[in-house]
């Protein structure tokens, strides 16, 4: 293709996005668009899968059968989200095995939040309420993103995520209204998960390298800082409603902006976690890689069996 032809295609492509048309797998797309989407969608899929671990950690210890069942259903949903997202990603010509390889080798990232440990039951509430809450703020705009398969996956994902978030908040309500010991447990979980949840919305606009391009492709509608502000404004009243305190001495309602001012995020901690040195990075990867390696003989058996079955079928046909 000549340079001029490519320019022409690019112009048509940009025009389609400007008209809010969806880009579909067989459509022409710039290589950079394809790569950015593989990066973001696979990172999203990996986050769902790694995210099963901190919550899976409490399945056997959930305090009531009702909570256990809800937690199992939630973790099952997450695995399902992982599946949709890997499938959506595969429409861009990359295989799930390649994506796993990128995750296991550390080449691909997953959400930094899952590198924090779930150490009490209240963490199941905090993760649902805050982590899923922040995820929803990030993800709802993606239901309208320009790449069709991603947008459609997100419609389903977001429905289930809002349900999980309500479940998490309900756990917190119950604890906050419970015994003093339960209330302390809830407050402690909020203290530990608050700042990492704010970090989930990404680096400040000044440091965010992908923002401009992502805005153009409608992968992003608002900047990280705007989304963070939205999350804070939405979450602070929810904490107040159940009598919990946000662990930020600088948090204050700003009458003029009609929004909360808040304290400085510890970006050193953020980068430490992103670069692999958070509290649980190594264990999470060990669990994922371990499951993959230990499961190899099972996957091999399934392949061998499928081939044998196929052969038998062919023989019968003859």
């Amino acid at each position: 293709m000549s340079e001029e032809q490519i320019k022409n295609l690019e112009a048509q492509f940009e025009a389609r996005i400007a008209r809010d048309e969806k880009i579909e797998p067989k459509d022409w797309m710039p290589e950079k668009y394809r790569k950015t989407h593989i990066r973001q969608m696979s990172q999203h899929a990996h986050s769902e899968i790694v995210g099963m671990l901190p919550e899976g950690n409490w399945i056997t210890r959930a305090p009531s059968l009702r909570r256990k069942v809800a937690l199992l259903a939630k973790v099952q949903d997450e695995a399902g989200h992982g599946l949709y997202l890997y499938s959506a990603c595969e429409t861009l010509g990359v295989s799930r095995e390649e994506l796993y390889e990128q995750l296991h080798s550390g080449k691909a990232k997953y959400s930094s939040i899952f590198n924090y440990p779930t150490i009490t039951w209240a963490d199941m509430g905090a993760v649902g309420w805050l982590v899923d809450g922040a995820a929803i703020i990030n993800q709802v705009p993606l239901c309208n993103t320009s790449y069709g398969p991603y947008a459609r996956a997100m419609v389903r994902v977001c429905k289930e995520e809002s349900f999980h978030q309500r479940q998490g908040y309900e756990i917190m309500i119950k604890l906050a209204n419970g015994t003093p010991e339960q209330k302390d447990m809830a407050q402690d979980a909020l203290n530990r998960w608050w700042w990492p949840s704010l970090m989930m919305l990404g680096p400040t606009d000044a440091e965010s390298i992908h923002t401009e391009q992502s805005m153009k492709w409608k992968l992003k509608r608002k900047s990280n800082d705007d989304l963070r502000q939205q999350f804070i404004d939405q979450t602070v009243p929810q904490a107040e409603l159940i009598g919990l305190t946000i662990p930020d001495a600088d948090l204050k309602w700003n009458e003029e902006r009609q929004s909360y001012d808040f304290g400085e995020i510890n970006w050193d901690e953020f980068w430490q976690v992103v670069k692999g040195h958070g509290p649980m990075n190594k264990e999470r990867m060990k669990a994922r890689v371990g499951a993959w390696e230990e499961g190899e003989w099972v996957r091999d058996a399934a392949m061998a069996y499928a081939e044998k079955k196929q052969e038998r079928k062919q023989k019968q046909a003859i």
């Binding site: 099963m52 399945i59 695995a79 669990a287």
Partner: peptide, 17 residues
């Protein structure tokens, strides 16, 4: 329930859960 997230494939994980 204790197998969740540790299975040989995503599909078997979903099934066991």
């Amino acid at each position: 329930g204790s197998l969740t997230g540790h299975g040989p494939s995503l599909e078997t994980d979903i099934a066991c859960t």
